[in-house]
Deep mutational scan, measured.
Amino acid sequence: DLSALRVEEVQNVINAMQKILECPICLELIKEPVSTKCDHIFCKFCMLKLLNQKKGPSQCPLCKNDITKRSLQESTRFSQLVEELLKIICAFQLDTGLEYANSYNFAKKENNSPEHLKDEVSIIQSMGYRNRAKRLLQSEPENPSLQETSLSVQLSNLGTVRTLRTKQRIQPQRTSVYIELGSDSSEDTVNKATYCSVGDQELLQITPQGTRDEISLDSAKKAACEFSETDVTNTEHHQPSNNDLNTTEKRAAERHPEKYQGSSVSNLHVEPCGTNTHASSLQHENSSLLLTKDRMNVEKAEF
């Protein structure tokens, strides 16, 4: 173990290094160091905050020279020094078990990766560091076993998940096959086929009936047209017969005018059967003409 005197000496050296690497504005270890034209180094955030307070150039807090945003430059070497100082402080805390008085939040800088452990060898070769390295080497064999167990647990979990997924996939297939086998029997399929065939026959029977009705309507229309044509021909046949009657009536009127007047009046009210309204109107006109002729003949006879 380190003596108290040596611990104090190391602590004083760390404090001196820390004062050199402090920012003059925030009085902390410089984060993202930036250098000016006057070779003074500050935190990048502190300098941008200072420049944004005034429009135009501002003055350096140490030498009062003008500073602009374009004049600022990043210093990589200074950032490396800060990183190495942080590593020294971490090693000091691990070796002594004491917390550094002016320690900052170094938890963000710590890294437990194997590459980081290899890099620590180049920091300080001390008894405390050696003991700590031995402890780490002793704890390393235990870690692979834990990793193997965790991997086995994960693989077993994956296997159970896969088996569950396969079961879920197989179950719908089985149910679907069961439904297909038990849903419709052979008799049901035959009945469905016969039902479809009967429906098709009914459709075939319905369509000819409609065509037959249309044919019957067409035949009825044709018969009505033929009947009207026969009526017209009958009226045409009746007209010459009426003319013959008129000639006979004229002759009778010349011989017996008194008797014919009474008979002509009675004939006005008689309509021949089986004739249309057109034929009756023609008869009325003929009878009126005959009456006028008879009157003329009677007057001539009187004179």
Results as ranks from 00 to 15, higher is better:
S3H: 12
A4N: 06
L5I: 09
L5K: 11
R6W: 01
R6M: 02
V7N: 02
V7W: 03
V7L: 07
E8I: 12
E8Q: 14
E9C: 00
V10C: 04
V10A: 03
N12S: 14
I14L: 03
N15S: 13
M17R: 00
M17Y: 00
K19W: 01
I20H: 15
I20N: 15
I20F: 12
E22C: 02
E22V: 02
C23F: 01
P24H: 00
I25Q: 00
C26V: 00
C26N: 00
C26T: 01
C26E: 00
C26A: 00
L29M: 05
L29D: 05
P33S: 07
P33W: 00
V34W: 03
T36V: 01
T36K: 00
K37E: 05
D39Q: 10
D39A: 07
H40L: 00
H40C: 01
F42D: 01
K44P: 00
K44I: 00
L48P: 03
K49S: 02
L50C: 02
L51D: 04
N52F: 02
Q53M: 15
K55R: 10
K55P: 06
Q59K: 03
Q59T: 02
L62D: 02
C63E: 02
C63R: 00
D66P: 11
I67K: 03
K69V: 13
R70D: 13
S71L: 06
S75C: 15
F78I: 15
S79L: 03
S79E: 15
S79I: 07
S79V: 04
S79C: 00
Q80D: 08
Q80Y: 05
V82I: 08
V82Q: 06
E83F: 04
E83Y: 01
E84K: 05
I88V: 06
I88N: 00
I89F: 05
C90V: 11
C90F: 13
A91S: 05
F92L: 01
Q93P: 00
L94H: 09
L94W: 08
L94F: 07
T96A: 01
E99G: 02
Y100F: 12
S103M: 15
S103N: 03
F106T: 07
A107S: 02
K109G: 13
E110A: 03
E110H: 08
L117T: 15
L117S: 04
D119R: 04
V121L: 08
I123S: 15
I123M: 14
S126C: 05
S126T: 14
S126W: 05
M127V: 11
M127S: 01
Y129L: 07
N131I: 06
N131R: 14
A133V: 05
L137M: 14
L137Q: 10
Q138S: 11
Q138N: 08
Q138T: 11
S139K: 13
E140Y: 09
E140T: 07
E140D: 11
E142I: 13
E142F: 07
E142N: 09
N143T: 12
N143M: 14
N143A: 13
P144C: 08
S145C: 12
L146F: 02
Q147Y: 10
Q147N: 14
E148M: 12
S150C: 09
L151R: 13
S152H: 03
Q154G: 13
Q154S: 09
Q154E: 10
L158W: 10
G159T: 08
T160D: 12
T160V: 05
T160F: 03
V161R: 08
T163F: 05
T163D: 04
L164Y: 11
L164M: 09
R165G: 12
T166E: 02
T166H: 08
T166R: 10
K167Y: 04
R169P: 15
I170G: 05
Q173K: 04
R174W: 12
L181F: 11
G182E: 02
S183F: 04
D184E: 07
S186Y: 03
K192G: 05
T194H: 15
T194N: 13
Y195L: 13
D200S: 09
D200N: 12
Q201I: 05
Q201K: 10
E202D: 12
Q205C: 03
Q205V: 06
T207N: 07
T207S: 09
Q209V: 07
Q209A: 10
T211E: 08
R212Y: 06
R212E: 05
D213F: 10
D213A: 12
E214K: 09
I215F: 12
I215D: 12
I215C: 07
S216Y: 11
L217T: 06
D218L: 06
D218H: 05
S219D: 12
A220F: 03
K221R: 04
K221Q: 10
K222F: 07
A224K: 09
C225W: 15
E226S: 13
S228G: 03
E229A: 09
D231N: 12
D231R: 13
T233D: 14
T233L: 12
N234R: 04
N234P: 09
H238R: 15
P240L: 13
N243W: 07
D244S: 03
N246R: 07
T247V: 04
T247Y: 14
E249K: 05
A253R: 15
A253W: 05
E254G: 02
R255Y: 10
R255M: 00
R255F: 10
H256N: 11
H256Q: 12
P257M: 03
P257F: 12
E258I: 04
E258Y: 09
K259R: 07
S264R: 11
V265F: 11
S266R: 11
S266Y: 11
S266H: 02
L268K: 08
H269I: 03
H269F: 13
V270C: 14
E271G: 04
E271H: 12
E271L: 05
P272N: 14
P272T: 15
P272D: 15
N276A: 07
T277F: 11
A279R: 13
A279S: 11
S280F: 07
S280R: 04
S281Y: 07
S281G: 04
L282P: 10
L282C: 03
Q283N: 05
H284N: 09
S287V: 06
K293R: 10
D294M: 09
N297V: 15
A301G: 15
F303Y: 15
